[in-house]
Simulated assay, not measured.
Amino acid sequence: MINILLADNQTLTREGLTAILSSQKDICFVGHASNSAHLIELMTAYKPEIVVIDPYHDNAFSINDIKNIYSRFDFADILILSNKRQKSEILEIIELGVKNYVLKDCSPAEIIDAVYATAKGEQFYCKNTLQTIFGNDIAPNKTNGIPLLSIRETEIVHLIADGMANKEIAEKLFLSVHTVKTHRKNIIKKLGFTFKNATELILLISYLSDVLI
């Protein structure tokens, strides 16, 4: 049984999420927190596996609640369910270690998938979240004509995501720095997207996982 605590004081969200997940026999709501203090109280009492939280709505919760959960309750993981669509704020949340972020206008099927992914410790971002981050420059599937990356290009993508600089990648793969730079240019050309930091690149890998060799 997957025990969920919902931290959102919006009645419509509580009732909607309950309705969506009620068909899943292995999912159970243990409580609904209305503010930060209530959240800590319920976390301590019920020890849920998943906290579904909107850190932005109506000032009831904040990013500090996410930090607090991670620092005090190692038995729980976090699923963000929010209307917040600003790229910088979504990335700020993800950089705290949150691996699961869905927008409130995503499909019921995506919300269900997100819950199961969170329970398994897997990463999940709904299509609308990824489109907010990457815009329409990244196509969601092979039918939109995204070329396959080569084995070497895919290897370099993962090393960049690990935070390695061109020189470090060159040394690890026994390549020249010039060759690594050329590969990076080819990757950007193929994907049609210039990644600005490791967080964005990790998300890009997730978004295009079906086209990475």
Rank of each mutant, 00 (worst) to 15 (best):
A119T: 02
I187Y: 06
Q131G: 00
I27D: 09
T182M: 08
R14C: 11
I213F: 12
I69V: 15
D54H: 03
S34R: 12
I202N: 13
N3S: 15
I205F: 01
C106E: 07
Y70K: 15
G192Q: 07
F193R: 03
P140D: 05
N9H: 13
K127W: 00
L91Q: 06
K47A: 15
A19R: 14
I4K: 02
I151L: 13
I151N: 13
A165K: 14
D74S: 15
D8T: 03
T132L: 00
N64V: 08
D105I: 07
A19H: 12
A45I: 11
R85H: 08
L21T: 09
P108Y: 04
Y116M: 01
L203N: 09
L79W: 05
I202V: 09
E155W: 02
N3C: 07
S206M: 00
F195D: 03
F61T: 02
Y46W: 11
T182C: 02
V102L: 09
L39H: 06
G145M: 08
S176W: 02
A165I: 10
S34Y: 09
E122W: 01
I205W: 00
I213S: 12
I151V: 14
M1C: 08
R85G: 04
V157G: 02
N59K: 15
F73I: 08
I80K: 02
H178L: 08
L201M: 12
P108W: 05
T132V: 11
L130R: 06
I187A: 06
V30D: 10
L39M: 13
S88A: 13
A139Y: 10
T194I: 13
D65V: 09
E49I: 06
V157A: 06
L12I: 14
E153T: 07
Q123R: 11
N100P: 04
I205P: 00
K196H: 12
D58I: 09
K87T: 12
S71D: 14
Y116G: 02
V30E: 12
T179I: 05
I66L: 15
G192I: 07
A119W: 04
H57K: 12
A109I: 11
A60R: 02
I188H: 07
N83W: 10
P147A: 11
L149H: 05
T13W: 00
L21K: 06
T154V: 13
I151S: 13
H32I: 14
D54R: 01
P147G: 06
K104A: 06
A37C: 10
I69H: 08
I40K: 14
L130V: 04
S22A: 15
N35S: 09
Q10Y: 12
K172T: 14
D113L: 10
I138H: 01
S23A: 14
L39N: 03
V98M: 04
Y56A: 13
Y101M: 04
L96Y: 09
E122R: 11
N68A: 09
R14Q: 15
S23F: 11
D105A: 03
P48H: 10
I146T: 15
C126F: 01
I63M: 14
I40C: 13
G97T: 07
K127A: 13
I50M: 08
A165Y: 10
N144I: 01
I94M: 06
N186D: 11
E168S: 11
K120R: 15
S34T: 13
E200R: 05
R14V: 11
D137V: 11
K104Q: 12
Y46N: 14
S209M: 05
R14D: 01
H158D: 08
E171L: 14
